[in-house]
């Protein structure tokens, strides 16, 4: 905005790389200067990461975390989308149910852990339940507001052309609400990724979250801790970008503002 000239194409790579380079340099030198014995330098993190990859441990952990997210997120979508569409379509029903939902929403999924363990035992299932909970509310909210924000003009046109209410829901309301639903799904996926790490720290013993906590507990391997954190960040970013590319599909693109 305040730049004097439009940035050139190569600058798209130059500036972030410069910033990343600065960050790495600060990191490296602060480790050297403080002569800390515990906190890893970028190099040792790199070595640690290579080691993990080499021992195939990393792929198993990544797979576990992704699997749990997939299951929990999928379940949340399967339950949340139809429910959200229904609540959005019948505002009277929404008015009755909404206060309960608004009350349950701020309860951190982590707070559900003891109850989840009672219901599901230990292992994968309580973790998947937590992920389901965390993804459910953003999806529900996005669907409800997506449906209620469909301009009345579209619903009227649907009626005008002789469509039945079911047809209006599937052929008009759902496509019109789809951009907002996609945004809700993307946000839910992001939250699910945050929660899986937390759930794995507490309730299970595999996955990236477990890797973080375990690397510290069994040997203070902070190089592995940081390596695992970076992997978490990169995969989370990849998931987010992957989802954003869905927003480019032609029949949904109209709902998203094009970033210049």
């Amino acid at each position: 905005m305040n730049s004097l000239a439009k940035p050139a194409g190569w600058e798209k790579f130059f500036w972030p790389l410069l910033a990343a380079g600065l960050l790495l340099a600060v990191w490296y030198y602060s480790v050297v200067w403080t002569a800390t014995k515990v906190f890893p330098s970028p190099l040792s993190v790199d070595k640690g990461l290579a080691g993990l990859l080499h021992k195939h441990v990393l792929w198993a952990d990544i797979g576990d975390s992704l699997r749990r997210v997939g299951l929990g997120f999928g379940a949340a979508a399967i339950v949340g989308i139809p429910l959200g569409l229904t609540l959005g379509w019948y505002p009277a029903l929404n008015q009755v149910v909404n206060p309960v939902l608004q009350f349950l929403r701020p309860i951190s999924p982590i707070a559900w852990i003891p109850v989840a363990i009672v219901f599901f035992g230990v292992g994968d299932r309580p973790a998947v339940f937590l992920i389901f909970l965390s993804a459910f509310f953003p999806i529900l909210v996005a669907c409800v507001s997506g449906v209620s924000n469909v301009p009345a003009i579209f619903r009227r046109a649907g009626r005008n052309f002789g469509l039945s209410p079911a047809q209006i829901l599937t052929r008009v309301v759902f496509p019109a609400a789809l951009p907002q639903i996609l945004i809700g799904l993307r946000i839910a996926l992001g939250v699910a990724w945050l929660v899986v790490v937390a759930a794995e720290m507490i309730a299970v013993d595999s996955g990236l979250g477990y890797l973080v906590i375990d690397s510290r507990n069994s040997g203070k391997r902070y190089d592995l801790v940081v390596a695992a954190m970076l992997v978490i960040g990169l995969i989370g970013l990849a998931l987010d970008l992957g989802f954003r590319s869905l927003e480019k599909i032609r029949s949904v693109r109209w709902g998203f503002r094009h970033e210049s």
Binding site: E11, W15, G233, L234
Partner: peptide
């Protein structure tokens, strides 16, 4: 342009992963 990609990598790291 410089900061945005870096933030996008740090943001998905659950705060709990910072516990150690």
């Amino acid at each position: 342009m410089a900061i945005y990609p870096l933030v996008q990598i740090f943001r998905p790291i659950s705060p709990l992963a910072w516990i150690p």
